[in-house]
Amino acid sequence: MGVKQRRKPERATGTRRVLLLHLAHARSGDKGDTANVGVIALRPEYYPILVKQLTVRRVAAHFRGMIEGKVERFELPNLHALNFLLHGALGGGGTLSLKTDAQGKVLSTAMLRMEVDVPEDLRVG
C-alpha cells in the first residue's frame, strides 16, 4: 500500500520530487460536507505514478488539520483519473459553512500542492 512512512517519506534513488501540479490537473466540488477532488493525469503515462503515490494515507496527511473526516479514493483508469472524497472538509457544508470556499471549489488546486516522486528521467510538463 505505497508509502509506509508517516511523514516526509524518503525519496527513492533515481527519483526526483515534483509538484503534483506538473503531473495532473484537477476539479473539485461538494456534496453536503464532503468535497470531491478529481485528479487527472496530464499525460497517460503519469497515471500509474498517481495511482502509486496518491494513496489515501498520503492525501489524508496532506490535508491533515483541514478536514475532519476520512478520505476515500476511487480509480478511473479510463480517464487516467482518481477521484477523492474528503469527508468533513467544508465546515458543515452548503449553507452552514462559514468558509470562503464553502463548496470546495479550489480544494482542487490545494491538492495539486502535493509533492510526488517521479523517475529522474521522466519528461514533466
Partner: peptide, 16 residues
C-alpha cells in the same frame, strides 16, 4: 478531452 474529463469528475462520488 481535458476539459470534459474535469466536468465528468465534478461533484462525483463513487464513479462506478
Amino acid at each position: 478531452v481535458a476539459g470534459v474529463t474535469e466536468q465528468l469528475l465534478y461533484e462525483m462520488g463513487d464513479p462506478a
